[in-house]
Design a protein around this nucleic acid. Structure first.
Lengths: 241, 241
DNA sequence: ACAAAAGTGTTAGTTATACACCCATGC
DNA sequence: GCATGGGTGTATAACTAACACTTTTGT
């Protein structure tokens, strides 16, 4: 915080804090996954009022002694069993009336995960399911806005930082990578130009292995070389897709 | 919020809220201005503990019935007397230990203003002063991080949205606009290429007036045509500098 | 043999960069 | 008349976008 409002600056320090309001602070997670050629969101059926029974994002209150991003990681672990998930703060939703139950602000975070990695039974036991953006049902409260804003941020960021790889398995083919970007940006890309571009970035390592799940002929697998990426960054390189 | 943590979802609704913690929520403003060819920040000397006497950003606690961005606008009005200021949310700072005085999270906002517009006496009566980024003293708490992050966001946004004009007077010259971008990006730009680029965007209107403050010859004044900009946006145009 | 996806190169258009001189004016 | 900043054009390089056919293999 910054207890520095000019109008209260003269108050003694104890009064200064005591004279102010405390609010509930929550975090909600927009969890993106990629599977079957589609970008998906993990959502679940809300079990508390208001909007009980409505689909919603996964969230939790922030505890008094807990970092806000720690709260988001706690939620992610509870629902997916995973600890090492890519997590970014998205935006804070602070309208006084946003939650009719109580005054509560929410710091939204978006997470990127490999769908196969996580414990499907765990998510299902929480009533959580993966939905494509197209199939997404109406969501509780202002969660629709949260999804829209997070998607917007994901799109911007994916263009300049190699975060797409967080959504793919360690080993992936160029056509899979292309499908990922197509589903993030919801438009088709030219396979020749796409391949040329990503390979020109010099951060993909071609493996001696093929993935035959997508075609009879099979496609070569690649992996993202994060050491190489770090090196290049230090010598003033710009990732851009 | 989203009271949807799986572990607490079974509790009755009253218990559900009551069992959680409330926190102080503040907002801090990174106020950018442009004057004398330099990008500046409005900061002031803190008058409460912790860090009393240290330079800091301007902030305030969010009231229980107040939108978070409303709190930021309230602070801006108190300190500058202005109501119509460009304001964007920057980022939320939620480390448990960020303020040694009390558990408090802060939703930082950045504001862009025309320095001449505002009441200089009002800001001075609050002990607030404009500093260039180079001259900036050490700031209280995590305000240094807030400045760095806000500047980062400003840089990204200024490239793709015409927000630079919020920092200039209504009428400005091309060399002034160039100096603004140079001070945002901290690098020199070629005057011929710069002029070509901004004029090609088709959103500047040349006026029949010259500004002679910068040179004997004087430079033509322009204004930003926001109607034209809106029109162009709707026909799929991309502003980019 | 054929269907289905993987893989490959070239060209044209657009955009970015680099660069040097004349202009108008106040002193 | 000279110092100061304002204003203009061109050539090259880099990048983007459009586009069609051959390869491999399972059935």
């Amino acid at each position: 915080m910054t207890p520095s409002s000019a109008s209260t600056a003269q108050a003694s320090n104890n009064d200064f804090y005591a004279a102010h309001d405390k609010l509930y602070v929550a975090t909600d997670c927009i969890i993106f996954g990629f599977d079957d050629g589609d970008l998906k969101l993990l959502i679940f059926k809300r079990r508390v009022e208001p909007d009980s029974g409505i689909w919603s994002l996964i969230g939790s209150f922030v505890k008094i002694d807990e970092d806000v991003d720690e709260a988001a990681r706690r939620v992610l672990k509870e629902i997916t069993g995973l600890e090492e998930i890519y997590l970014e703060q998205s935006k804070t939703y602070g309208k006084a009336e946003r939650d009719p139950g109580y005054r509560c602000i929410s710091v939204a975070h978006y997470a990127l995960m490999r769908i196969n990695d996580h414990d499907r039974e765990l998510t299902q036991s929480h009533g959580a399911f993966w939905y494509t953006l197209q199939e997404l049902p109406q969501l509780a409260l202002d969660h629709q806005d949260m999804v829209r804003d997070a998607l917007d941020k994901l799109r911007r960021r994916a263009r300049y930082q190699p975060i797409g790889f967080e959504l793919l398995p360690e080993k992936f083919t160029i056509p899979q990578l292309q499908k990922l970007y197509e589903s993030i940006y919801q438009r088709e890309l030219d396979p020749r130009n796409f391949r040329k571009k990503v390979l020109s970035l010099k951060v993909l390592v071609k493996l001696d292995e093929k993935d035959k799940s997508g075609s009879k002929r099979g496609a070569y697998l690649y992996r993202f070389d994060s050491e190489k990426y770090q090196e290049l960054l230090e010598s003033g390189y710009n990732f851009e897709i």
